[in-house]
Design a binder for these strands. Sequence first.
DNA 1: AGCAGTGTAAAACGATCATTTTACATCGTC
DNA 2: GACGATGTAAAATGATCGTTTTACACTGCT
Lengths: 175, 175
Amino acid sequence: MDTKTKLISAAEQLFDRHGFTATGMDKLTKAAGMSSRTLYKHAGSKTALITEVLKERHRRFQPHIEVGSVDALFDALEEWIRSESARGCLFLRAYGETGGDIPAITEAVLAHKARLYDKIQDIVAIENDEQEMPELAEQILILYEGATAAAIYRGPGAVVSAHKAALALLKQARS
Amino acid sequence: MDTKTKLISAAEQLFDRHGFTATGMDKLTKAAGMSSRTLYKHAGSKTALITEVLKERHRRFQPHIEVGSVDALFDALEEWIRSESARGCLFLRAYGETGGDIPAITEAVLAHKARLYDKIQDIVAIENDEQEMPELAEQILILYEGATAAAIYRGPGAVVSAHKAALALLKQARS
DNA sequence: AGCAGTGTAAAACGATCATTTTACATCGTC
DNA sequence: GACGATGTAAAATGATCGTTTTACACTGCT
């Protein structure tokens, strides 16, 4: 594992576990096993590091939304939440901690969410004879987002409930 | 408006706008129009201040869940988000920023969420001949949570979509 | 052999953090 | 008219923040 990969993954873990602002550079260097000089050579700044962590997170998350059905979408979410984290959406957390005041971060967050909505719209269209159904897509998105949030305090079962609700809405839209 | 009220409401605004950790005590004293000595006399510590802000937030939010129907629940949420904040759930944000490591804060968050779920379960029971329907209640909760989160980047329209989805699930459960 | 690249360890930077302290002003009340 | 409560302004506390710097070691290429 090269230096940068090690840095990004250590940072992702710490940010997810303790928050962005609360995680200091000393803890990052220690966790990544490198000097602060090396860290700054690769990351440039803390803001840039956060941005890169979000972009890497998006890359790693991508396969979980690259699916062909609503059923598979929630299966993938359940797997993610069971294995990765039940600490809420890291993108929205970054947005909240920075108040939307840091353009690079805000951009990464909004890009991720735009991509998520677009992908869900694609999936919904596949399930409905290629018809665009923007509101149904938004409702699936809301269930997806809500399951991620509710899983923090209700556990992975929230994803199962959201899953069933999504299938029910889909079925109803078809008839 | 007495000193403490002024402090709590200034703090709530700053925390909501800029995040908890990123909001320093100097900004709090300035916004609340008081010296740091007075602030500490009333709040005790930053952690205690955050906790009190959350409790006050819950008190102010309470009426929006003290309703008798799912329809009214989402109407109230829409009103809250349109007039108060579309920056996500302040409780979950506090939890995320502190990593769940500060007991007083974690407690306030979990108490709020437990109360929210219980209330939704009551409402769902009212709508279904006093039958307890835990999974439907969780699905409504997830739509509620998801609308709050999605409204950050999709605007208040997300609440409208969630509202319709909730009514659809309710209708389907009845038949 | 020499050089560019990549790394470490550790100190120093000025700023800002949460919190406490010192010194003083203004109250209403007994 | 003294007193306790409640406030202010401002400096000081020591810790920690993100970032830069200094000085040095190891590597692989040419």
